[in-house]
């Protein structure tokens, strides 16, 4: 496999894991715009153990997950006291605090970053993303998944049904933290280097976009969102020169044309994002859509069972 494709698969896997990390709190009705902060905790946790103590990835990854889960659990209590846009700002502020702390820490390399000696091939993040995906699909099929989605729809009634809504939200936030830690550790070991500039606000925004535009109602949503937004810039990399050629032809330009500027990819990405918000505000994949596809199977089965002999 070429370096290009293994690089893409690595990034895609890490993005899928991150999307699920943010999906869990969002599925309970809590928007989290601090993804980069949680990922940075995991990445630096793993990088530090690997560079300073020479630990293997089988030790650094569980540690990074546990550390990020612990941090998430502890800040969940003050954070989840806020609601709506205030929670979004609070999680964003948390990511900024993490970034600032790491930037000013000599132990963690400050602005110089940390190099990570233990390296993993792309198969490891791919396997990680696969396991996380199966785990999330399982979780959403349990009663825990049911009460998570119920708390998202109406927390007052969910409470009345006997559910500890706060407990469910803290748990979802903590499990999400562990997944963000996993994504961070895989990032550190895949790219052999971490620097805090890589964990900036636009990462937090992108990861939240994967979830919101992919769809928050089912486990399919974040998967679709991460796939779409990771692969689209790559697809545009190929499609853009051709697109410019056609446009030139249509407008009657003659002669050779220069390759278009890279930044046009992000213009198109931005336009698509706006269009999706306008026309599919509940996300690419909605509950009704999944139910329809499932129903088609189910209806055929029922028809067979109910048919008179």
């Amino acid at each position: 496999m070429s370096g290009y494709w293994s690089g893409i698969l690595t990034i895609l896997s890490i993005n899928i894991i991150m999307a699920y990390a943010i999906f869990l709190p969002v599925a309970t009705g809590q928007l989290n715009l601090g993804g980069a902060g949680f990922q940075a905790v995991g990445a630096y946790g793993a990088a530090f153990l690997s560079s300073k103590y020479g630990l293997s990835v089988w030790e650094t990854i569980p540690f990074a997950m546990a550390l990020t889960a612990l941090v998430s659990f502890l800040i969940a209590f003050p954070l989840l006291r806020t609601k709506g846009v205030y929670l979004v700002l609070a999680t964003f502020a948390f990511a900024e605090v993490v970034g600032g702390a790491i930037l000013n820490s000599t132990m963690l390399g400050g602005p110089m970053g940390l190099s990570v000696p233990a390296f993993v091939e792309y198969q490891v993040p791919v396997l990680g993303a696969l396991l996380v995906t199966i785990f999330i699909f399982y979780l959403m099929a349990t009663r825990f998944g049911l009460v998570m989605r119920a708390a998202h729809d109406d927390d007052v009634v969910t409470d009345l049904m006997g559910v500890n809504v706060r407990g469910i939200r803290v748990a979802a936030f903590t499990i999400g933290g562990a997944l963000a830690g996993l994504a961070g550790a895989l990032y550190a070991h895949s790219f052999s280097f971490v620097e805090i500039q890589g964990f900036n606000a636009s990462l937090s925004i992108y990861v939240l976009l994967y979830v919101l535009l992919g769809g928050t109602q089912t486990a399919w949503g974040p998967l679709a969102g991460a796939l779409f937004f990771t692969m689209l810039p790559e697809a545009l990399r190929v499609a853009l020169p051709a697109l410019k050629g056609w446009m030139g032809l249509a407008m009657g330009f003659q002669g050779a044309r220069t390759a278009p500027d890279e930044s046009w990819r992000f213009v198109i990405l931005g336009i698509l994002t706006v269009l999706m918000m306008m026309f599919r505000s509940e996300g690419l994949i909605t509950r009704v859509m999944v139910e329809k596809l499932r129903f088609r199977h189910h209806a055929v089965r029922l028809a067979r069972v109910d048919a008179p002999a």
């Binding site: 399982y138 099929a141 349990t142 009663r143 825990f144 049911l146 009460v147 989605r149 119920a150 998202h152 729809d153 109406d154 009634v157 969910t158 049904m161 006997g162 559910v163 109602q217 509950r287 139910e291």
Partner: peptide
């Protein structure tokens, strides 16, 4: 719950009889 199916809404009503972490983590489907 508008985003849950009819059956899922009913299963939410069962919650009071299905306490405990073990029941929470058993699959419904």
């Amino acid at each position: 719950m508008p985003h849950l199916s009819v059956t899922e809404n009913i299963m939410l009503g069962q919650q009071a009889r299905a306490g405990g972490v073990v029941e929470l983590l058993k699959p419904l489907s």
